[in-house]
Design a protein around this nucleic acid. Structure first.
Lengths: 244, 244
DNA sequence: CGTGTTATTGAGTGCGGTCAACCTAGGTGG
DNA sequence: CCACCTAGGTTGACCGCACTCAATAACACG
């Protein structure tokens, strides 16, 4: 069902009663589809609503003057796109649909209302914002202080962990629909070097990636090779072991 | 007066009445000094209080396994260190005093209480968290898609803008007490290359940096050279011009 | 079956890293 | 007041990881 990942995501952040779950789902009256390669929201916009990904993959990105792009986050089902735009005046970056995405459009005042009436959801919002920030910090560490192999492997471990949280991993396999160019923009590498790096990881037997599917046969092995420690994801009540 | 930068910082985020200012200052009953090179709070801690920098410079950092360090943020007077630690269970990074710092230790429940009684301050907290996140995103863009000269120059423009906000810039001059090693850890470069980069910037007449003082004779010139656009700092009611 | 997009591989280059030496300022103790 | 010490800044020589440019292969989709 289309709200399943959204609820699972919220539950990884705060435990919810059935009433609270219903309140969360009630936010999603207005669901629209953004097709692949279109912006869900663009830089400079001043949205009066919040977007929640219900299905599909999206990415935050900024364009620099020479035309190159930097992806600063991947958004999965259940993720909030842009509380920024409502609390701050304007979006300082854009959000792109990597696949076709079902997106809930939630009026900002509805968010305000529900946070007043349901403190748990306020707390959930806080927590997921802070976790997003922690992920951002980790990306910064990877970009500045790790080589290409570890950076790429680390990112794939992270996607595995986050997809597992929302129930979208089966037996080490998960959808990973982005191009190598997009992986490059997310790691600060070029698509050419991402390709070589993936070849090395494949040759070491650590993973296979093709046709939009990632397979990690031995997650702890990859995690070890890439110094992946899921602590920064702040998984509630799960041992790190469980995620590896 | 020691609360001056703190209040100025809050006012750059939300406009406050005198009563609200007094409420904010009332948080700072317990002020302690953390000496240079000591952690204000360390990774793994589960603090029951929030730390606010009142004077001095601090830095968020993480250590990677090979021993190298990555600085993910600089904290100036008025900045909150660690709402993370209270909302999430534990700190996933540490905070270092770069100079001797006066730090307010605020019990977490006092924060919760004041956010309930003074919604403006809740909003101010939200906004400054989201601005911190925006700065983080910008650093990620710089690290992945800009050369050393622009990265370093951009960082110095940012520090100039943030110091100006809290009234600590005079005539293009400001204290910048960190070592080149620390600048390197913040930009993903080595101290050696930071040194060369600063030499280049100096030779181009864009800035001078020595003995803990940065001087930018022509801020718009440096901003242009480094593609610095302060939009991501979300300065309220100031033209970008005013900050350049 | 043709066309545009994405993946793959090779050859050559350059930015920033590494290693190492030396300089300078400021602090300390005799 | 000077001799010493140390942290930090400066510079040079060399190296290597990732980038660039370019050509080809493999898909995906009409």
């Amino acid at each position: 069902m289309q709200f399943e990942p959204f609820i699972r995501k919220l539950e990884t952040v705060e435990s919810l009663t059935d009433a609270e779950k219903r309140a969360a789902i009630a936010l999603c009256n207005d669901v629209r589809v953004t097709p692949r390669r279109k912006d869900i929201i663009s830089q400079g916009a001043s949205p009066d609503r919040v977007h929640i990904i219900l299905s599909g993959w999206a990415a935050r990105y900024s364009i620099v003057r020479d035309g190159s792009r930097r992806i600063t986050a991947f958004l999965l089902p259940g993720d909030f796109c842009d509380i920024h735009g409502t609390v701050l005046a304007t979006m300082d970056h854009s959000i792109l649909a990597i696949t076709d995405c079902e997106v809930a459009h939630v009026p900002a005042d509805l968010i305000e209302e529900i946070t007043r009436s349901t403190p748990v959801l306020t707390r959930a919002l806080w927590r997921s914002t802070l976790i997003d920030e922690a992920i951002l910090r980790q990306w910064l560490v990877n970009a500045g202080r790790m080589d290409a192999l570890k950076t790429v492997g680390h990112l794939l471990c992270e996607m595995h962990a986050r997809m597992k949280l929302i129930g979208l991993v089966e037996d080490g396999r998960l959808d990973l629909p982005m191009t190598q160019e997009e992986l490059g923009d997310a790691t600060g590498l070029t698509s050419v070097h991402v390709n070589r790096t993936l070849r090395d990881l494949r040759q070491q037997g650590l993973l296979t990636l093709g046709r939009g599917e990632l397979h990690i046969p031995d997650v702890p092995a990859l995690a070890k090779a890439c110094e992946f420690d899921p602590q920064y994801l702040h998984l509630r009540g799960r041992t790190s072991q469980g995620m590896l």
